[in-house]
Nucleic acid binder design. Structure first.
Lengths: 143, 143
DNA sequence: TTCAATTTAATTGTGTACAATTTAATTACA
DNA sequence: TGTAATTAAATTGTACACAATTAAATTGAA
């Protein structure tokens, strides 16, 4: 086995398990989120809006690392489903403010149960969870 | 701050940094892979084929955690670009065997440089890399 | 003040992802 | 042997994801 093969081995890459684990975990979330009628990225938008009354598309993008090309159509879908409201800012017409509707706010109580259920399905120790989060956040802070 | 808000805080979730870090890292890969004319998932297919002469679509799916709905169109694009060859197995007509063309094989030497360049851009200690990989693999093995 | 530079969303086009279904081939068992 | 069950890809439809471009509003410097 030459050096090349070792470097390129799937099992030696850290990015591959990252890529694969993310998708598998998103799949675990799916049945839980389906009951709320949202996808995982839409759920993240809700989490932001549970914390802040109103955010702009730009702020959402900064928090979630997504651009308007992803957010605009996603927010339109959420608006169609009656979860959020999009409104041009009267202060600055370039800006679009996003906020929860009553229907969106009503989901918060259901959403509480998801992280709990989830941590029951993923069998990591508490300190492993913390370490994983620390390492991922360290990467995120660099890029 | 009530308990609910704490549970649902973006910063308290482990899945969010996982989701975000994966996409940010894939973006880091992009300029490197662009030179090879492939996307990140396509690069993963190449990695498998550098290790194994021929794999079926099913085997690819098992290794990369992807289904035919993703792989079939992706492999067709790679075939159009002259990187791989798709051929119905003569032993079992249901099966499609995938293998590298000469052009695909020629990429291996360029591909070697990518993990090296990449590890230079991500500033994690060697043991942190190992720990991250261990935790992600542990999750993958569960789901 | 004016107009060029910047900023914010939206749009366009390509490429994943994946659930659900379909099609064709193979296997298993009555 | 004949047919039901299973298997492997492909297809269909929906939803991200993101680079690149566009359009409209705002800002800033001459």
């Amino acid at each position: 086995m030459n050096v090349t093969k070792n470097i390129l081995r799937l099992s030696n890459q850290v990015c591959f398990p990252l890529y694969a684990a993310t998708r598998q975990i998103t799949k675990l979330y799916r049945p839980l989120l389906e009951k709320l009628g949202v996808t995982y990225p839409q759920y993240l938008v809700l989490l932001v809006l549970f914390e802040e009354e109103t955010v702009t598309v730009k702020e959402l993008g900064e928090k979630l690392y997504l651009d308007s090309g992803t957010l605009t159509p996603m927010l339109k879908r959420m608006e169609e489903h009656g979860l959020v409201e999009r409104r041009r800012s009267s202060v600055d017409e370039r800006v679009v403010d996003v906020s929860l509707t009553n229907k969106g706010r009503a989901i918060e109580k259901q959403a509480e149960k998801i992280p709990v259920k989830f941590s029951e399905e993923i069998l990591l120790e508490q300190d492993e969870f913390e370490e994983l989060k620390r390492l991922l956040t360290k990467i995120l802070d660099q890029v």
